[in-house]
Design a protein around this nucleic acid. Sequence first.
DNA 1: TATTGTTATACTCTATAACTATA
DNA 2: TATAGTTATAGAGTATAACAATA
Lengths: 163, 163
Amino acid sequence: MEESVATRSHYEELARQLSAIGAVKREMGRMLPQDCPPASAGVLTLLERHGEMRMSQLAELLAIDMSVTSRHVAHVCERGWVERKPDPADKRSRLLRLTPSGTELLAELSERYTQTLARYLDDWTDTDVGHLVELLARLRTSFGDCRSRAPHEPCTTPARTAG
Amino acid sequence: MEESVATRSHYEELARQLSAIGAVKREMGRMLPQDCPPASAGVLTLLERHGEMRMSQLAELLAIDMSVTSRHVAHVCERGWVERKPDPADKRSRLLRLTPSGTELLAELSERYTQTLARYLDDWTDTDVGHLVELLARLRTSFGDCRSRAPHEPCTTPARTAG
DNA sequence: TATTGTTATACTCTATAACTATA
DNA sequence: TATAGTTATAGAGTATAACAATA
């Protein structure tokens, strides 16, 4: 597919915006409870939305390696927010489920998220926010779908150094 | 300000999407040259867009602490992509400027960004991409990030022309 | 043999605090 | 005293590889 000059420019700008959006993420993370890092909040949110699931499924939803998922889950389990139960169908597997304490924390998180965003986005219309959410979701889908159809090898080309 | 139920729901969904967008950022980072981590690419891009500047200004544009900025700058300077010159107006300060080697690397980065996004977003219209870019920039602005200004501001160094 | 999950190790990115050099 | 920048240290997040237990 051939892209126009305008599209190409938009691509470069999108790359820049994605690189810079970390500042917003960090700001959002600053209002989380002291022992609940962003990664824990993500785990809890997904367990609330999708219900009981296995480690591998959670890793897939988080789009991170299962080794990383394992550590995040250990953290929320140590604090009693999530429960790990043996899977009767497969003894290698463990089923994850929110505890009442975890559900309670999620209510707190929801409150903080909402208050923070209401403060920062007070001049946004509901439609604007909805549209951004939609486009972000679609962006993630586009990247996820491409993973299977276009094998992409990590780049090993060394960068040029000054001559 | 009071928000509707729909708005509140959108807020929670936005928080979720922001938390999950890291997967896209990481995928974008994977196609960078071995020697050029995402942070370095960010430094180079801002120096191209805004021209010569001091450490403190770059830190402001990156929306990260100057201590972190200092390390990122050291990395790109060691590789000859950026030059640190003494500021004649203030001997505590250092002026940062892209080298020809850095400019050359930026052309390579632009090419890779464009190719990667063209592959992943091949079913997006130019309008869709533009809209997402716009909303992301606005989001950063709402959070108090000065980087979101479009690169049409007065710059010492003109932006590279695309295509 | 392959798969599920855990642990060890390493790398990137960031913030805080202590430090220097200059204003 | 205050500010610009550097460095040391700590913490969060992730990926790869080696490993144990089970399918």
